[in-house]
Design a protein around this nucleic acid. Structure first.
Length: 634
DNA sequence: GGCTCCCGTT
């Protein structure tokens, strides 16, 4: 009788495990939880059943439910945890954003003398890839060789992926690949990603065409490569081939990957196509990641109204979606909208650390000092979020921009984490804006220790010396910069016209329409001057003129010429001659827009009757009828 | 007996 009961219990357990497996495969958390409850009630879990526990652990890991997975992992007695249990939880930690914890757990597993198999090695290599830790990755490589796992295709794939993600050691990737007896389509795809990322999209295409077989991932990698490099036409051609000739459907991972690339490169035409595709296939009930990527894409492409429309129509929203829209509004200087929307967010989802970055930067960009201080206070006391260095950075920025330099410095001195170069960099920026030379000098000393090769801060301080009449100090600074050979990151501006990205550097003459662009530029400067534009040479005197130390009239003229051929103005001139009159222009700049270009854009938006949207490294400026959305508050 | 690789939102 007892034997019969045991037998039925064992078959019941098998039944449960097979049901749990199907929940894991489909990431069905709710039915899985019900099974968990049923297993508990039936008494199956009241005596040790390690396979069932592992199936439950796997369920929660597959459903990205870290707290439950952690609970299950702890439920398994230490003496009975085997390689499979560890592997399941290591993968879960790595995927949920804790790759370091995953590696720590692997170390624990090894200390306990448990064997390493191909599967656990794949998971550990994956954690190294996510962490970007090539050192541990190389140790694993040695382990792979030692255990004889090089014949295992998936291990090799994970190994190559680790080298791709950890700084692009494409040589290592190819070495592993060449030794493989029978590389799979995944192996080829990993190499493809490495080549696209580190050897350029053209080289990637050569490899793509040579691949014996291509899956949707390979197509996605290639697409993202094109979009990320501004090659919209090529991307559309590839997409057409993928969907219409080869019959691939686009899944949600492909859609969000492509959208993320669109957001980065500012390619709204491809972004819109993906939006249309998503609507046709899924309607508004689309995947939460796709919806979020859409919101982010529209916001980062300067279409904040479209971002809001998508946000309001999406039926699935999580904290990331909210963060995307609040961050987008913040970048567009719509601080009040952010403050007004926050209470609605709290009703719907729990805000996280990232939310407060968006909130504080919104206050910072809109000069809402009181509101920002209040948010910062509530961050810990109401929402239980421990402030991170980025939050302190936002506070320093908020107070500094508003001219409250003493308060900003007090934040730096009192913060429990040592300030990094971004925090101090923001402070020195505010010192420049508000002419606080002495504080600037002090901060500079600290910054030089932290980041001796940074040019931006050196230039800022040197400019401050000039503005306060200390030309000698400025000159000595310039000498230091010259001696050390510190080079400025070149400013680049780009603009999409007819699905093609056109890039300009300062004084660029490489564009095929250079002659027309410069004719337009000269005409524009003339009209700008006529409307009251005065070149702002004050901050350029120092580093603009190619190493001249004098400030004669000719030097000044030279400085003006440098100003006029700033990359933003070239992109604007090109945009004006190559688009329909009255249509808005969207320009992307890799650094902060300069003061002079900012004034020029304001007037240009009026005299040419165009909306000009400029995305710089930090935020958006929308110029319309002579004024800017930032209200000149940077 | 189970745990696995490539593209994935702020």
């Amino acid at each position: 009788m007892k034997w019969k009961m045991l037998l039925s219990a064992s078959s019941l357990s098998q039944h449960f495990r097979s049901l749990l497996r199907s929940c894991s495969v489909t990431s069905s958390l709710h039915p899985g939880k019900q099974l968990h409850a049923a297993a508990t009630v039936s008494g199956l879990l009241s005596f040790p059943n390690y396979f069932l526990l592992n199936a439950l652990l796997h369920l929660y890991a597959s459903c990205s439910s870290l707290p439950y997975a952690h609970y299950l992992f702890d439920q398994i007695p230490q003496s009975h945890k085997d390689t499979v249990d560890y592997t399941t939880f290591i993968k879960c930690l790595s995927r949920q954003g804790y790759p370091q914890k995953a590696l720590n757990l692997f170390a624990e597993m090894r200390q306990r003398g448990l064997s390493i198999d191909g599967v656990s090695m794949v998971c550990v290599l994956n954690a190294c890839a996510r962490l970007g830790d090539v050192k541990v990755g190389e140790q694993c490589h040695a382990g792979v060789v030692k255990i004889g796992l090089l014949k295992c295709v998936r291990v090799c794939n994970a190994l190559m992926d680790m080298y791709v993600k950890c700084g692009g050691l494409v040589g290592e990737v190819k070495k592993v690949f060449d030794e493989m007896e029978d590389p799979s389509v995944v192996s080829w795809t990993v190499v493809l990603e490495g080549v696209v990322k580190w050897e350029g999209v053209e080289n990637g295409r050569v490899l793509f065409d040579r691949m014996p077989e291509r899956n949707e991932v390979a197509w996605t990698v290639m697409l993202v490569g094109y979009v990320g490099n501004g090659l919209t036409k090529e991307a559309f051609m590839l997409l057409q081939q993928m969907v219409f000739s080869c019959g691939f459907g686009l899944n949600y991972v492909t859609l969000s990957s492509v959208l993320s690339a669109c957001a980065q490169s500012g390619d709204v035409s491809m972004g819109r196509w993906v939006h249309g595709y998503g609507l046709k296939m899924m309607g508004w009930d689309m995947d939460v990641m796709v919806g979020t990527s859409l919101v982010d894409m529209y916001a980062k492409c300067g279409r904040i109204d479209a971002a809001l429309a998508v946000f309001n129509n999406t039926s699935r929203r999580n904290v990331v979606t909210w963060n995307a829209i609040l961050g987008g509004l913040a970048m567009h200087g719509k601080g009040k909208a952010v403050v007004d929307m926050f209470p609605c967010m709290v009703e719907e989802v729990k805000p996280d650390a990232m939310t407060f970055m968006a909130l504080l930067s919104a206050c910072s960009h809109s000069g809402l000092v009181e509101k920002g201080l209040q948010f910062f206070k509530e961050l810990e006391s109401v929402y239980g979020i421990r402030p991170e260095i980025e939050h302190y950075g936002c506070m320093v920025d908020l107070l500094g921009r508003a001219g409250q330099l003493e308060e900003a410095e007090a934040v730096v001195r009192k913060m429990p984490i040592p300030p990094n170069e971004f925090v101090l960099g923001s402070l020195i920026g505010s010192c420049y804006t508000h002419g606080k030379l002495q504080l600037g000098e002090r901060i500079m000393t600290e910054l030089v220790h932290m980041d001796p090769l940074n040019t931006e801060y050196h230039i800022l301080l040197s400019n401050m010396y000039v503005l306060s009449g200390k030309v000698d100090e400025a000159n000595s600074f310039r000498q230091i910069l010259k001696k050390r050979g510190i080079k400025k990151v070149p400013g680049m501006s780009s603009i999409y016209v007819d699905g093609k990205l056109h890039q300009f550097s300062a004084g660029d003459k490489s564009h095929s329409q250079t002659a027309e662009i410069y004719i337009m530029l000269n005409d524009m400067i003339r009209r700008l001057r006529f409307s009251g534009y005065v070149p702002n040479t004050s901050s350029q005197v120092l580093f603009g003129c190619s190493g001249r130390d004098d400030c004669t009239e000719e030097a000044l003229e030279e400085v003006e010429q440098v100003l006029f051929s700033h990359s933003e103005k070239l992109a604007l001139s090109f945009g004006l001659i190559s688009t329909v009159s009255g249509s808005p222009l969207y320009i992307f700049k890799n650094l902060r827009i300069c003061q002079d270009c900012h004034s020029a854009m304001k007037i240009a938006s009026d005299i040419y009757n165009r909306e000009i949207v400029v995305r710089d490294r930090y935020r958006f400026h929308s110029f319309k009828q002579g004024s800017c959305s930032c209200s000149d508050y940077w």
